[in-house]
Design a protein around this nucleic acid. Structure first.
Length: 151
DNA sequence: GCCAACGTTGGC
DNA sequence: GCCAACGTTGGC
């Protein structure tokens, strides 16, 4: 099973939105960046993801969620009333993907961005590189264990 | 709120 | 295909 990291603003959807009802399936939709989209499209049921809280007071990795359904066309791209509507997309040729997620765990403590930057194993991870805005990225097994090991 | 870094758009 | 203008991201 592959490992990933996704960014989110906790005011939009943070780990507590998952933890509140662990059985709830939350669609990860509205991603409108091609590189992130390409990673979303590769996600499969059972994959695990770190959930990173960005643009907020306590920045860092807050928990783990799991893919409960393989990637599928993001319905919002077809909805004219959605801010994620894309007139250039069609059901025949969908442009954007979504993935369904479910709660796995909250980390006992937030792993802050500073601590992530201090881990030599994460030197190649886009998250810690200056100016990087990628919101969905693959995480290697080594990176995954380095992050969990920093707890 | 600021602003650097980045991705996308569109004219040429 | 280039690149300036623009909008967005995200740490501070």
């Amino acid at each position: 099973m592959a490992k990933w990291l996704i960014k989110s603003e906790p005011s939009e959807c943070g780990i507590n939105d998952f933890a509140r009802d662990p059985a709830k399936v939350i669609p990860w939709d509205g991603v409108r960046n091609y590189q992130a989209r390409n990673f979303l499209a590769q996600m499969q049921r059972g994959d695990e993801l770190f959930l990173y809280h960005s643009s907020c007071k306590h920045i860092g990795i807050a928990g783990i969620v799991r893919v409960v359904q393989d990637a599928y066309p993001d319905p919002l791209q077809f909805d004219p009333d959605s801010k994620y509507f894309d007139p250039k997309s069609s059901p025949e040729k969908p442009r954007w993907q979504a993935v369904d997620m479910q709660f796995v765990a909250k980390l006992p403590t937030l792993i802050t961005l500073d601590r992530l930057k201090a881990l030599p194993e994460l030197a190649d991870l886009a998250l810690v590189r200056k100016g990087n805005r990628l919101s969905v990225m693959p995480v290697t097994e080594a990176e995954w264990h380095a992050i969990l090991g920093s707890l």
